[in-house]
Nucleic acid binder design. Structure first.
Lengths: 107, 107
DNA sequence: TCAATCCATAACCGCTGAGTTATGGATATC
DNA sequence: GATATCCATAACTCAGCGGTTATGGATTGA
């Protein structure tokens, strides 16, 4: 089982899949048919992308008759933000260590 | 040529490559040999990962004799932060009346 | 100078994954 | 009930990518 940022990065690495997610973020809930109309690929391909996005928690599906409505779950991006700020934090703390070292050397 | 977030996502999607980047963030500048010692893969594989990280602007290399020192460039993560906050922003603004109207007109 | 070390590149290989077409189940429409 | 539509899954293909070994250039040390 992969950790959260790993799955998020892999899921969002594909441009087509990211475009679908972006569209759901911009325009809100969409049916598979509407998404397929703009994706430039076949309907099964879109369904597969949606399944992967759902697996990553990035989208939510709602069944209504024979259509399925998908919507973005932006909260799922949280581990990505965490990872990024953690990396920046490591870098910053190293900088702080250097600053601290230089300050002590100065005395 | 792919846009910035696309290259970042693809580069960071590989766990081995991301581990190398994380190590550089945590521990600062490292030689290829030091990175290879912890990566669990061959030295050429590490060099290839570093080349891809460099291509994405995520690392910087410094040649010193026969060794090459690599260091993380956390600033390169900026487009990732931008993209994430943009997605969150779209999600927020979907409750705006004008955007909602435009969305329904588009369908 | 000769040998050893460090790293990058080349050439190759197996697997993953994104796309396709085919199909079927479920729902809507006639 | 018959037909059409929406979507998901199955089966398959093919390119790209991450790994390997082989090799060589550059630098260091004996």
């Amino acid at each position: 089982m992969s950790n959260a940022p790993d799955q998020l990065f892999k899921t969002l690495a594909d441009p087509t899949r990211r475009a679908i997610f972006e569209r759901l973020c911009r325009n809100g809930e969409q049916t598979v048919g509407a998404l397929t109309a703009h994706a430039g690929i076949s309907q099964p391909a879109v369904s597969k992308h949606l399944a992967i996005l759902k697996q990553a928690g990035l989208v939510h599906d709602r069944h209504e008759g024979r259509q399925t409505h998908y919507s973005a779950q932006v909260e799922a991006l949280a581990p990505l933000i965490d990872w990024t700020s953690q990396m920046a934090g490591f870098w910053e703390s190293r900088f702080d260590d250097l600053e601290d070292l230089l300050r002590r050397m100065d005395q």
